[in-house]
Nucleic acid binder design. Sequence first.
DNA 1: ATGAATGTGAGTATCCTGTTCATATTCTCG
DNA 2: CGAGAATATGAACAGGATACTCACATTCAT
Lengths: 207, 207
Amino acid sequence: MSTRIAKPAARMRKQPRQARSIATVEAIIEAGAHVLSELGWAGFSTNKVAEAAGVSIGSLYQYFPDKLALVEAIRRRHFDHVLSVIREASAEAKPLRQFARELVRGMIGAHSIHPTLHQVLLDEAPGDRGSRAVHASFQARYLEHYAAAVAQYRRRRKDTETMARVLSSAVEGVIHNAARRNMLDTPELQKQLVELISAYLSGSRAT
Amino acid sequence: MSTRIAKPAARMRKQPRQARSIATVEAIIEAGAHVLSELGWAGFSTNKVAEAAGVSIGSLYQYFPDKLALVEAIRRRHFDHVLSVIREASAEAKPLRQFARELVRGMIGAHSIHPTLHQVLLDEAPGDRGSRAVHASFQARYLEHYAAAVAQYRRRRKDTETMARVLSSAVEGVIHNAARRNMLDTPELQKQLVELISAYLSGSRAT
DNA sequence: ATGAATGTGAGTATCCTGTTCATATTCTCG
DNA sequence: CGAGAATATGAACAGGATACTCACATTCAT
């Protein structure tokens, strides 16, 4: 009865071994993302998540030791996704406008399933213990990619980091706002966002 | 007993008549804004607000019939403030760059006391009953001012509204992000935000 | 077939929350 | 001064929600 549970990959109480349990864990994480995006942190309760996943609350606690471990798993998955999108857009050298288009397309894609998950994760969901590290590391790499893009299309070496910050938060702001209004797939908006990015990185000077 | 209470400014249980009670109400609203910004909607409890205001919970309920009436009062005050900032920045005709500078300065000022209040109000705080109207009216006038500015510095009549939406949410995104990192008063950032606005409204065309 | 893996969900033990009310203090004004 | 009105107090209440456990049932791998 006092079997030592060695060192699970994530902070898990038990490692899913069969296909059935893997699907269960996946369903829980997915439902968690849904609840988090739909109801915010305030409405994120383990019972609600279990119900949304079509799984008993007991099953949830079979794999996640507590609520925060679950948020952590959701966070990890989402951040990985977003990161891969930016990495891909800023990968090889390409014309500015194409970069902007790919970035917009990718970011919108990453937000279209759980529109407000990203913001909730950043703003509301608590980040204590070890998750602070995950968070910081994500932010760092996130900015890095933006900075790389900025450096590529802008000569000035000076304000690269600040520009990356401004650009990323501007993009996030537009997408977040569009998500709130269910306008994520409005082509007009996508176009204008591409325009915004291009204009900023082109750097017109008009005093 | 049937004295006409002239104009209950907000939905109040009782109208403050003496200087003392007016100060109390003000303190409650101010503390409410603080709690809302600091702890989010999830941490916004009437008892906490009363304590933060240095006032007993009973006093709070002397003037606000319920929790939502309090949020409503906070919302009204904040929205009025923000609206006045934009109105002022987009008032008379002035060079694009000056408009951008004034807008940035004003918006940062409006966010520097309760950095995340704006976002919490928009994203988390519930808006049912009559407050939906307040909210919508605010959004409408908010966008109107941005649209006016866009129309002034851009020839094309076509995408004015979309551009206003993009511009406003981009600015909000940058400011919100800066607020989260306590970078609101970083001059570099302010400068780059001005740059972003100018660049977008100048409209460099680079295919 | 047998033990391990997986799934169940009513139940528990807190913890909070919004709100009231009987009472105390302070003000206004004749 | 003093009387009634305005203002302030905070313990208490009633109710709900929450995270999490556990004893047991079901399904799998071998």
